[in-house]
Simulated assay, not measured.
Amino acid sequence: MTEFDISLVTRRATSEERRARLTNASFGSGFTEHMVSLQWSVSRGWHSGKVTAYQPLSMDPATVGLHYGQVVFEGLKAYRTADGRSAVFRPEAHAERFQRSARRLMMPELPVATFVRAAEHLVSADADWVPEEPERSLYLRPVLFASETALALRPAEEFTFLLFAFVTERFFADARPVTVWADREYVRASPGGTGAAKCAGNYAASYAAQARAAAQGCDQVVWLDAQQRRWVEELGGMNIFFVQGKGSAAQLVTPPSSGTILPGVTRDTLLTLAATRGWAVEERPVSIDEWCEGCRSGRITEVFACGTAAQVSPVGAVRSADGGWTVGEGKPGPVTLQLADLLDGIHRGRRADPHGWMHYV
């Protein structure tokens, strides 16, 4: 396993200074004190791992990642558990997805053990930043980019891995049901493309559709398939679930994790949790027309999105150029609330973790 030099780790901020830095900090801005870095080259492989103070980078104008988009990233969280310890949720699963993203963009695959070790070092160095408040967590952002300075149109031969963190609340902080816009013009991904990879270009390409959704008074955009503009794929940067029926007879349906859909770690977690609760789960295509008809007939009783940032977020209403509809009663349903509580309970150490998802640091 690659070693990391931790001799440069410092602890500077007092509790008062941390509180001041986090006051009014929006999502993705309350950064902690340290970061992890690691280099890769064709001749040396992974090397020069270290933990340092969080600091700006010095980059050559010809850095390949700036021009050709060889950039992938991840998002995972560390939590303060009920016994006061810090734990990272499913780092191995995120490491494996990080590898798949890198593979798709012809980038070196960081070993799972090295990824996990980097997360351990960062959470240990910034242990005081892992929040105790029940609505807060420490969001870890690993990123890998082509750092070679040669603009030949080929895969780069030098790469930089970084890992840093910020304190965050839920993405939708007030936990209200979101309103979504079903967009039939823009698409997130096409068959054979990079939809299943967590790469930078996918997110920049989503801004125009998200801006249109916001202009329609919606919180997020519903992505439909690229070929027919018919099949529901994702919700913004999150996976989506449909609940049919109620109580013990409820069934959860989610679009299959194909090459155009990012295979979410939270999605996989909820599929497992739902099955342990006795709810039937099914992965199959769901059309936008089925969603509309199902809500109007009462067959679809709840809809929610899920992801590392959003956790479990209920969907209350859908709008589109053809009209709109309400999901259930327009408020969080019982299945959504139970799954959200189960997930949060595992994160916070209030519930059993039979799958060993929490990695204590």
Rank of each mutant, 00 (worst) to 15 (best):
T52S: 08
A175F: 07
G75R: 08
E109N: 10
P111G: 10
P263N: 08
L235K: 12
C199F: 09
Q227H: 03
P332D: 14
G316Y: 06
A309F: 06
R229Y: 01
A173N: 15
D268I: 01
R299V: 08
R85A: 07
E135L: 03
G324F: 10
D344M: 09
R351T: 02
V243S: 09
V315P: 03
G345W: 15
I6C: 13
H34F: 08
E120S: 06
E283H: 09
P334N: 05
A125R: 03
T336D: 07
A53T: 15
H34V: 09
G45C: 06
A250P: 08
R12M: 10
R188F: 07
T336S: 06
V9P: 14
T23Y: 15
P354C: 09
L270Q: 04
G298H: 04
F145E: 00
R230P: 00
A93N: 04
G75F: 04
G333E: 04
T336I: 02
F164A: 06
F89C: 00
T2A: 14
H355V: 04
S190E: 05
C306N: 01
V72K: 09
T63H: 08
V64Q: 12
R11W: 06
A352T: 11
W46Q: 15
G323M: 15
G195P: 00
T266F: 00
A119R: 07
V130G: 01
V112K: 14
K50N: 15
